[in-house]
């Protein structure tokens, strides 16, 4: 065999260590990394650096394109393995709830205020319109969603919808699941819409507020305003806050793309996008809690006082969790 060719000799000398790295990566990616022994785990970075140096040498001295292609693919694969994050799910979850999520939420407080104002403006508009002219109701609340709770319903019927006795616990869990998936979908949608320069997100938030304001107007016109608010707020504190936060994360993205400030547009978009993603994962968790409160709590708890207490306590918990002192110190090791 002709081994006087330098590049071929080079390949013969190193080939085994490349194959070795390839095999370790195969196993580490297919099974959990724990299937490798400690020695094997430690060998990967060393073999990776050897492959990188082979790549440099090959580029400088070998004209075998197939060899260079192989080494590029192998080095890139090993690079992503060696420099990929290696935190366990548990560590990540703890860090998320202790630092990442509250910090991200606190960071977008301006957008949160704007999103809340848009929602309340929607609610107020719908309330005034429906109070003045009940025909407006159909424009804000679809017949599906109203399910009989419209201006033509009797006061007795409306009262019953607030204190209905549930049929059984099982249907409640179905209802809770439906509410959770439905609301979470809307929250994610509101976030994604932010990409289109805030407009659609604002409309969605306003529409969300409109439905609320319109229904409140109907109940308030029968003297059931206080009872309706209790019925809404038991879960609404959590749910509304979650939707407002999702909208705020969307607004933040749209705003940073439109007005990136000192950063480049792409860097600003990236920062707000990743921050928004943290917020949105938390929002899904909040909506899960809201779904439980709405599906179970609201149907099982019929006392106004208790409903208001739960609403107040959940508001206190969320606000102190998100907006209490500075957590950034924790962020730095």
């Amino acid at each position: 065999m002709d081994v006087t060719l330098r590049s071929l000799r080079f390949r013969k000398e190193r080939e085994e260590s490349w194959r070795n790295l390839e095999e370790l990566l195969d196993r580490a990616e297919r099974n959990a990394p724990s299937s490798l022994t400690d020695d094997e785990m430690l060998a990967i970075p060393a073999l990776y650096r050897a492959a990188l140096s082979s790549l440099s040498v090959a580029r400088a001295t070998s004209l075998d394109q197939a060899l260079i292609d192989y080494l590029e693919a192998l080095s890139a694969r090993a690079y992503f393995f060696v420099y990929g994050a290696r935190t366990s799910l548990k560590e990540r979850a703890i860090r998320f709830f202790a630092i990442d999520w509250p910090v991200a939420v606190k960071d977008i407080w301006r957008e949160t205020v704007v999103a809340a104002l848009i929602t309340f403006a929607g609610a107020l508009t719908a309330y005034l319109l429906v109070s003045a002219e009940p025909d407006w109701y159909a424009a804000f609340v679809s017949t599906d969603m109203a399910s009989g709770r419209d201006p033509s319903a009797s006061t007795e019927y409306l009262r019953n919808t607030l204190y209905d006795k549930p049929d059984g616990a099982e249907t409640l869990s179905v209802f809770a699941t439906f509410l959770f998936t439905h609301n979470a979908q809307i929250a994610i949608f509101a976030f994604a819409l932010g990409f289109a320069f805030c407009g659609p997100t604002s409309l969605l938030l306003a529409y969300n507020g409109c439905a609320l304001g319109a229904m409140f107007a109907v109940f308030a016109s029968r003297g059931l305003g206080f009872e309706f608010a209790g019925w809404i707020l038991i879960h609404g504190v959590t749910e509304l806050l979650a939707v407002i936060l999702a909208g705020a994360a969307g607004l933040k993205i749209g705003w940073s793309i439109a007005f990136p400030g000192d950063e480049s547009r792409i860097a600003a978009a990236e920062r707000s996008g990743r921050q928004g993603a943290i917020v949105i994962v938390g929002v899904v968790v909040m909506l899960f809690i809201a779904g439980l409160l709405e599906g179970f709590g609201r149907q099982l708890i019929n006392s106004d006082a208790l409903r208001y207490t739960i609403a107040a306590v959940s508001a206190a918990i969320w606000f102190s969790y998100f907006y209490r002192g500075d957590r950034r110190g924790l962020d730095r090791p």
Binding site: M1, D2, L5, S7, L8, R11, E15, W18, R19, E22, D64, A66, L67, D69, Y70, A73, L74, A76, R77, F195, I253, I257, I266, A269, E270, S272, G273, R274, G276, A277
Partner: peptide, 21 residues
């Protein structure tokens, strides 16, 4: 764009024989 990612090719690396052999 908003996540700061891109999608790259990650070919299955196959070491072909050296033609000089």
């Amino acid at each position: 764009f908003i996540a700061g990612t891109w999608v790259l090719k990650a070919p299955k690396q196959i070491l072909l024989v050296d033609l000089t052999t």
